Simulated scan of single mutants.
Amino acid sequence: MTIVLDARWINDEMSGIGRSTLGLLTGLAEIGPDQPIIALGGRSDLIDEAVGGLSRAAWLEHVGFPISPTSLRSQWRLPRLLRSLGAALFHSPYVYAPLWRSGGMKIVITVHDLIPERCSGGLAKSRKVQFAPLWRTWCRLQYRRADAIITVSDFSRRELIEYADVAASSITRIHNGVALPPAGDDGRRFRERFGARGVIISYIGRHDPYKNLDALVRAFGRLREMVGGEVTLVIAGRRDPRYPQAESAARELHLNGQVIFTDYLDEATRQSLLRASTVFAFPSRYEGFGLPPLEAMAAGVPVVASNAASLPEVLGDAATLVPPDDTEALARAMATLILDADARRAAIERGRERAARFTWRRCAQEYLALYERVIGV
Results as ranks from 00 to 15, higher is better:
177 G>P: 05
171 I>R: 04
173 R>P: 05
169 S>I: 03
160 L>T: 09
162 E>T: 15
227 V>W: 01
161 I>V: 13
157 R>Y: 06
223 L>M: 12
184 G>K: 04
213 L>A: 03
190 F>V: 01
167 A>T: 12
211 K>R: 14
167 A>I: 10
188 R>L: 09
218 R>T: 09
228 G>F: 06
240 D>W: 11
184 G>M: 02
189 R>N: 14
189 R>A: 15
192 E>F: 04
195 G>L: 12
245 Q>S: 14
184 G>A: 05
228 G>N: 10
177 G>V: 12
191 R>I: 04
194 F>P: 02
190 F>E: 00
227 V>E: 08
221 G>R: 09
240 D>K: 07
237 G>P: 06
169 S>E: 15
166 V>F: 01
196 A>I: 05
225 E>F: 06
202 S>A: 15
171 I>M: 10
185 D>C: 06
234 V>A: 03
176 N>R: 07
234 V>I: 02
160 L>P: 05
218 R>A: 10
176 N>W: 11
226 M>R: 15
219 A>N: 02
184 G>V: 05
219 A>L: 07
166 V>C: 00
205 G>F: 01
241 P>F: 06
239 R>K: 13
225 E>M: 12
187 G>W: 01
181 P>L: 10
180 L>M: 10
217 V>A: 03
189 R>C: 11
177 G>S: 04
207 H>Q: 15
183 A>Q: 14
188 R>I: 02
215 A>N: 13
187 G>E: 05
230 E>L: 08
187 G>Y: 00
157 R>V: 01
173 R>K: 15
190 F>L: 04
200 I>Q: 01
222 R>C: 01
174 I>D: 03
193 R>P: 08
184 G>C: 07
171 I>P: 12
224 R>W: 07
192 E>D: 15
186 D>F: 03
229 G>F: 06
214 D>G: 07
233 L>D: 08
175 H>D: 15
188 R>T: 13
162 E>L: 15
235 I>H: 02
200 I>N: 00
226 M>H: 01
170 S>G: 07
189 R>K: 14
243 Y>W: 14
167 A>L: 11
175 H>A: 11
232 T>I: 08
182 P>Q: 09
165 D>I: 02
214 D>T: 07
204 I>G: 00
158 R>T: 10
215 A>T: 14
201 I>D: 01
193 R>F: 07
243 Y>I: 10
169 S>H: 10
170 S>M: 10
243 Y>A: 11
201 I>C: 03
201 I>K: 00
193 R>N: 03
183 A>Y: 03
237 G>N: 04
194 F>V: 06
198 G>E: 06
232 T>P: 08
230 E>K: 12
226 M>C: 09
210 Y>T: 13
232 T>R: 13
211 K>I: 05
219 A>I: 09
177 G>N: 13
190 F>H: 02
195 G>V: 07
176 N>H: 14
245 Q>T: 09
210 Y>E: 15
195 G>C: 08
161 I>Q: 06
189 R>H: 09
210 Y>C: 05
160 L>E: 09
157 R>E: 12
168 A>Q: 11
237 G>L: 01
194 F>H: 11
209 P>N: 12
191 R>M: 00
171 I>S: 08
172 T>L: 03
187 G>A: 00
210 Y>K: 13
193 R>I: 06
176 N>A: 02
223 L>I: 10
180 L>T: 14
